[in-house]
Amino acid sequence: MKFGVVVFPGSNCDHDAWYAASHNLGHQAEYLWHSDTELKGSDCIILPGGFSYGDYLRCGAIAKFSPIMAAVKRFAADGGLVMGICNGFQILTESGLLPGALVRNRGLKFICKPVRLVPGTLNSPFTNSLELNKEVTFPIAHGEGCFTADARTLDELEAEDRIAFRYVENPNGSQRDIAGILNAQRNVLGLMPHPERATEALMGSTDGLGVFHSLVNAFATHK
């Protein structure tokens, strides 16, 4: 399986995603430059964390205009796997690939710490090898991670089983403890916590491998 990690100016978890996929998972991973217009045969696109374009204006607001995002949107529309982590989640909501918005943390401060999560559904290419109601621990590192949407959208997300992860102890004020969501077609995931930073015992947790293994499963089945 081949992972394509998009590099926007200001991305700073591109290396982490690349390292997790290639070194810790043992699959192929390649960087994709923001001004490129094709995805080099990637099977899964990762929009990594960081501060794309300095997060000026609004987090992810400028990245959505990158040439590569047009290709990512087409890829997603065709059923391709797309995972946006942290700033990548913000880019997905700004691009309209996912609903809702990520706003300033409730406490108005950047927070970096490991958080406990429960998978909201196993019915997705990103969570199929996790266990329902079994907690996983990933780090968070964000200032704008409070997930917000109108009540109808939230109800819809729940009704359609599209909550991928929920916080056990909500760190940032996200509505309904939402840490990650799926699109309606279930092939696009956005989440604030960093599974790629939990893929090795030295990092303090290997729970993030579950997300990557799920992707590998899904890809193998799909193929």
């Binding site: 290396h15 982490d16 401060k109 950047f110 927070i111 970096c112 893929t199 030295l202 303090g204």
Partner: peptide
């Protein structure tokens, strides 16, 4: 103080 700093980026922090 230190929870406001990203101390895990680059996945080298042992």
């Amino acid at each position: 103080i230190w929870e406001q700093y990203d101390y895990t980026v680059r996945t080298n922090t042992v």
